[in-house]
Design a protein around this nucleic acid. Structure first.
Lengths: 148, 148
DNA sequence: TATAAACTCTACTGAGTCAATAGAGATTAA
DNA sequence: TTAATCTCTATTGACTCAGTAGAGTTTATA
């Protein structure tokens, strides 16, 4: 399961990505639009800031902007920053590998083999879906819906 | 992440599936071979028994056997019984769908669309990998390793 | 029919995580 | 200098996870 925090992070990025113009948006405004508790959002944005996904401007008239082009922000990165590795087991993780301490022989473990396949499929999808795409996608879905 | 409990469940099934002959195996023996705390394993086997994955025989000389052919036990079922739905969000689950209460419009939500793709890919893999296959796979991997 | 050997069921516990809140601190524009 | 903003660390309550405990039920068999 994705944590609530990760869902909030993605929604906040949508707000930033949909914003026209390049002046920063205040946490309070992002919180309201993305329907995220404000103080909780502070932590989330801080995590993403440290990773360079968003950029902040302190002081009066400060706020947040995307840290890079929305084409260069993918779902996998956001989820990894907030929730940790994608794999179902540390022994099947490529970004945060860790041996199972009760595993007889990892190289022949059939469970691990299946979990690796799942991890690869998951990563393939999440790494290929960008914020830019998702925002476009949502826009056209809404447009299509209004027409019907 | 898979829970420890689910990993234990899979290991216990391997022990049952590798067992030759059809007399039942006692919890204590499964626990030892699968390296699972015995009392914890009781709960796990009970969960799987209710789902028909394993079968139990009470009383003296009792124990556990597989509830069906190992060809008909797949990873997805085991994981669902122990850990719940595979999807990363209830709104993306096919077996345990639940609406997000803070979602504006689920039909146009781009996050959900991505999570659905992940769920489908995950389910495809986990539903196609059976216990029988996994046991075979592990056996040949071990054999190959010994030869080298 | 008594007994030992097994599974069954419910309750409990300690550690840890999750979601959220709180508040003092640092920075900036004007 | 001040108001507005982000930054950082601590705390909280509820919940989940991993495991333990123990009384109850069923069965084979002597």
């Amino acid at each position: 399961m994705l944590s609530q925090k990760a869902r909030y992070a993605l929604r906040a990025l949508f707000v930033l990505g949909e914003h026209e113009g390049n002046e920063p948006i205040m946490i309070a405004d992002i919180a309201e639009q993305a329907k995220v508790p404000r103080k909780f959002l502070e932590q989330i944005l801080l995590d993403m800031k440290r990773r360079g996904i968003v950029h902040s401007q302190r002081g009066k008239f400060g706020g947040y902007t995307l840290g890079r082009d929305p084409d260069d922000i993918d779902f996998a990165e956001v989820i990894r920053v907030i929730d940790g590795p994608l794999a179902l087991s540390p022994c099947a993780s490529r970004t945060a590998y860790r041996r199972c301490d009760d595993c007889e022989d990892e190289t022949t473990c059939a469970i691990r083999k299946v979990l690796l396949a799942v991890r690869d499929a998951t990563a393939e999808i999440l790494e290929s879906r960008t914020l830019a795409q998702a925002i476009m996608d949502e826009k056209t879905a809404k447009k299509r819906k209004r027409r019907n």
